[in-house]
Amino acid sequence: MPKNLNSYFDDFIMDRVNDIAVQIINYNEDVKKLRKETRDLFDNIIKALPKEDKKLIFAYEEKTNQIDAHYFRIIYKDGFMDGLEVVKNIFFNFDYPNKWDEL
């Protein structure tokens, strides 16, 4: 069954969000530092947990990552739609003076 237009748009958004995330992770020094600090903290938590509790923290991490992915998709889509609304209002709802009115 062919995908609908919204499905293609969602795929585009997720690809774009992932591309932006990779750029941020690779080139933003503040984010690099924070990611290292959080990874170090996470590793310390894992070391401190008993073996049977480690599965819980990994399940928690997976769910928070899924939530973040939804946030990013929604935020990007809303921002994209806001941008389209701005373009529409600027270029299609503006009363341009008609040069022929002056003749």
Rank of each mutant, 00 (worst) to 15 (best):
P2Y: 08
K3W: 07
K3P: 05
K3I: 05
N4D: 15
N4M: 09
L5S: 08
L5G: 00
L5E: 09
N6R: 12
S7K: 11
F9L: 09
D10C: 04
D10R: 02
D11C: 07
F12G: 04
M14R: 15
M14T: 10
R16L: 08
V17H: 05
N18E: 12
D19H: 12
D19R: 13
I20E: 00
A21D: 06
V22W: 10
V22Y: 14
Q23V: 11
Q23K: 15
Q23A: 11
Q23S: 09
I24Q: 04
N26Y: 06
Y27L: 13
Y27R: 13
N28L: 01
D30F: 14
D30Q: 14
V31A: 01
V31T: 11
V31N: 00
K32G: 01
K32R: 05
K33L: 09
K33H: 08
K33N: 08
K36P: 01
K36F: 07
K36R: 12
T38E: 13
T38M: 13
R39V: 09
L41M: 13
L41H: 07
L41Y: 13
K47I: 08
K47Q: 06
K47M: 07
A48M: 12
L49H: 02
E52Y: 05
E52H: 04
D53I: 00
K54Y: 01
K54E: 06
K55P: 02
L56W: 08
L56P: 03
Y60E: 11
Y60L: 10
Y60Q: 09
E61Q: 14
E61D: 12
E62Y: 08
T64D: 05
N65E: 03
Q66R: 12
I67L: 15
I67H: 04
D68I: 11
H70G: 11
Y71A: 01
F72G: 15
Y76V: 02
K77R: 13
K77G: 03
D78Y: 14
G79K: 00
D82Y: 07
G83A: 01
V86P: 02
K88N: 15
N89I: 00
F92I: 02
F94L: 03
Y96W: 10
K99F: 14
K99W: 12
K99Y: 13
D101H: 01
